[in-house]
Design a binder for these strands. Structure first.
Lengths: 239, 239
DNA sequence: CCTGCAATTTGCGCCAACGCAAACATGCAG
DNA sequence: CTGCATGTTTGCGTTGGCGCAAATTGCAGG
């Protein structure tokens, strides 16, 4: 629904490159430099890109596929921070000069990425301020997203939170189908629960109730929004 | 406990300036440029710097005092995002090219700030990449903070969340006193509740219980941690 | 010193959602 | 085709902490 990054191109062309959230607006010669110093990486669904606590070695830009960023506490409880799609950055720690990755990033679909080491990224940002400015913009957007989620989690009931999250996911990576808007990557009840701060049981019950009312259709790791407007009503109605 | 920004200096000297999270590492001539284009601002406790939804006009750096950043939903429910102290940035939207402020910022103590318009900030970041890099770093740190709070809010009980938050606040702006570490700005039960996602009633009950055990001492809008180690135990103990 | 507002404390009833448990689907491996 | 692992549904008892209400305390302004 957002950018289109041309399927499975393994060697992305400059044009595609220039539409990336980190590199948009970068002059063409800089893009060529960048491409020269980039490392390509393929991941199969389920593969781990890096783990929480790992030393920060690189920043990655997603060319195709989708990944999940998650945070874990010592006791094993984990939450999902966000899903990362084409054009977006994975491994922001290297952008901000952090020395370890604050979360784990896992591929949820087969994915293609390109990466740069922290040192190179730093040089690039010093030479081409637009890249540093883009980095600030992208981190600012994510910070803002988190503020909103924190507010939702603090003040809203579970049903409404699930509604908001599905709408957000549909917006980020929904795919129009005959039955409605489908979340375009495998999303289990547990995943959804770990995004909105509840249990898979509660998510399951909620989705069942919605399915009864024809608002959604779901299968194993699949959710299709049949009546998005009804979801909006649930998520935003006064009361 | 963190930086010291020399009390009430209204015209901060370059040295102080250079210890700011946004400008550290900036060359001296740039700092002089910056100072020339800055606008000074004083706020009394309770004054509003800007409100959620306002058009983004400026970024501010706190020289002295303390402010509170909050987020409000349509229904009036609000949460506190964070407290902003000396050396920190208020109004990050202008750093990331946003066109409206995503939250409201209010002074909780008499405060001194210096500010730059979005346009000037943009120019500065283009001319001195270190400033853009610092902006990315600072937004990254806040993003990371939010991830941790989101995880706590998702997975931990209220008592533990209150414990973590008090420890965090003490770390950011604690002041050693005879009785223990005092949170160095007015913090009501309601404020604490809006930071950890609960009600002022629950906060009050929790603090009362802790006061009984000698872990904290509190008054009206005051909290002193008498036994920080006991709080750490509550916040981090297994189980 | 008095008055009034705002912050705090505390009691009590209730319910949304959790936790556990058990049955049931679905898709992949062999 | 069959079995297994993983995901999903659903029932049921429990409870943390919310919501309401009322009493109390502390601070500021007159």
């Amino acid at each position: 629904m957002q950018h289109e990054f041309g399927g499975m191109d393994y060697y992305p062309d400059l044009d595609l490159f220039a539409r990336t959230e980190l590199f948009q607006g970068t002059p063409a010669d800089a893009l060529r430099d960048l491409q020269a110093s980039a490392a390509r990486k393929r991941l199969a669904a389920g593969d781990i890109l890096f783990q929480q606590g790992d030393g920060t070695t690189s920043v990655f830009v997603v060319i195709a596929g989708r990944l999940r960023a998650s945070q874990m506490a010592q006791d094993g409880q984990q939450i999902i921070i966000r899903y990362i799609g084409p054009g977006e950055v994975a491994g922001y720690a290297a952008l901000m000069g952090g020395d370890t990755h604050p979360g784990t990033v896992t591929a949820v679909d087969d994915s293609h990425l390109i990466g740069w080491t922290s040192a190179i990224v730093r040089q690039i940002m010093e030479r081409y301020p637009i890249v540093a400015i883009n980095a600030a913009a992208l981190l600012g957007r994510r910070y803002h997203e988190m503020q909103i989620r924190l507010r939702e989690l603090s003040t809203e009931r579970v049903e409404r939170r699930i509604g908001h999250m599905l709408l957000r996911l549909a917006h980020q990576s929904g795919r129009r189908t005959a039955r409605g808007i489908e979340i375009a990557f495998p999303l289990s009840r547990r995943d959804l629960a770990e995004m909105v701060g509840t249990t898979l049981h509660t998510v399951s019950r909620t989705l069942s109730a919605w399915e009864e009312r024809g608002i959604v259709t779901c299968g194993r790791c699949r959710v299709v929004l049949c009546k998005p407007h009804a979801l909006v009503a649930i998520a935003d109605e006064e009361d």
